[in-house]
């Protein structure tokens, strides 16, 4: 069973989730047999093949075109469909990031395939592919199987470990993509956030603040602790709705679902919609002045106290 993995890039660099996807696909290929082809889509890609090879792809396919420098659903769809044809892959693996979640259903519809989205683990047994995926914002876990081929999968960021392999070499080839008149939703601009800011979904440590932080200014403390820990800032919906923090930081049922090794919730009550977004974190720490706050029920470690007093002490201690 040949596998194609689409390796996500942004701004000319492979995203962490991209490497995880190659590793996830590699493990699947080891069990399912067949060749693993890694697809890169962009403008100039030559310098990246070495990095990709290390994670164990048998082949690397480069789809280069000036119009593929930035992401468009139609441009990337053309490249992906051409790559599926070229490689003969029956399993197509992607990342369950903003890009992957957009393009996976497009490719599925184009190939009339089965879609298994946002997977946290994969199993191939007796010719059948099944996956585990959180549903209802993580309140339940679903085992879902494909009953026909081809299958498109997207892998949740941080659920698969990116691991390098020894002594693998990949054959590199190029893929011609005809984009003439294909791209109707055109990319006007991409604005990257200042200074390689880590996204909450990608960070290994998240320090999140809620209404208990009392003001937008006080989030300086959250930012300081996050930067000391090389982590990212998260927020409850209450503070996003109050415009203290941007939408991109909201964790929860209508925000982002994160699973870092350490999630520190400060001044967050622990509403079920917030818990849904962070309950799969490895270790949860809560700081809240109310000993009865529901967040303590989900936390591994708690400190009852005023955030304005506890946070400076934490910043000092780490």
């Amino acid at each position: 069973m040949d596998i194609l993995v689409f390796v996500e890039m942004r701004g000319g660099k492979v995203r962490p989730a991209g490497f995880e996807a190659i590793s996830g696909a590699r493990k699947l290929a080891d069990v399912a047999g067949g060749k693993l082809t890694a697809l890169l889509i962009g403008k100039s890609l030559d310098g990246l093949t070495g990095e990709i090879e290390k994670y164990g792809a048998d082949r690397i396919l480069l789809a280069e075109h000036p119009l593929l420098e930035g992401y468009t659903p139609e441009g990337y769809r053309e490249a992906l469909v051409a790559a599926v044809e070229e490689s003969g892959a029956k399993i197509i693996v992607m990342t369950a990031t903003t890009m992957g979640r957009d393009i996976a259903p497009v490719v599925t519809a184009k190939l009339d395939a089965a879609l298994l989205p946002d997977c946290t683990s994969l199993e191939y047994k007796e010719g059948r592919l099944s996956v585990v995926r959180p549903v209802y914002a993580g309140k339940l876990i679903m085992n879902l199987a494909a009953t026909s081929w081809p299958v498109v999968l997207s892998l949740r960021p941080k659920a698969f470990l990116a691991t390098e392999r020894e002594g693998v070499t990949a054959e590199v080839s190029r893929l011609e993509v005809d984009l003439e008149g294909k791209i109707r939703a055109q990319l006007l601009e991409t604005r990257a956030e200042a200074g390689d800011k880590l996204d909450v979904t990608e960070a290994d440590i998240v320090v999140a603040g809620g209404r208990g932080m009392k003001s937008a200014e006080n989030f300086k403390l959250i930012e300081d602790l996050a930067s000391r820990l090389r982590g990212a800032v998260g927020a409850s919906r209450a503070v996003v709705d109050a415009d203290w923090r941007p939408h991109s930081e909201q964790v929860g049922q209508t925000g982002k679902v994160v699973s870092p090794s350490l999630y520190i919730a400060v001044g967050i009550s622990g509403a079920i919609q917030h818990l849904a977004g962070m309950n799969s974190s490895k270790v949860i720490v809560a700081v809240n002045k109310d000993p009865e706050a529901p967040i303590f029920k989900s936390a591994d470690y708690g400190i009852v106290g005023d955030a304005m007093e506890v946070l400076p002490a934490m910043i000092e201690a780490v």
Binding site: R10, T97, A185, Q186, E189, T190, R191
Partner: peptide, 13 residues
């Protein structure tokens, strides 16, 4: 729309 680390803007008819 927002992606991890930025914003992208599209035009379509």
């Amino acid at each position: 729309r927002e992606f991890e680390g930025g914003v992208e803007r599209f035009e379509l008819t």
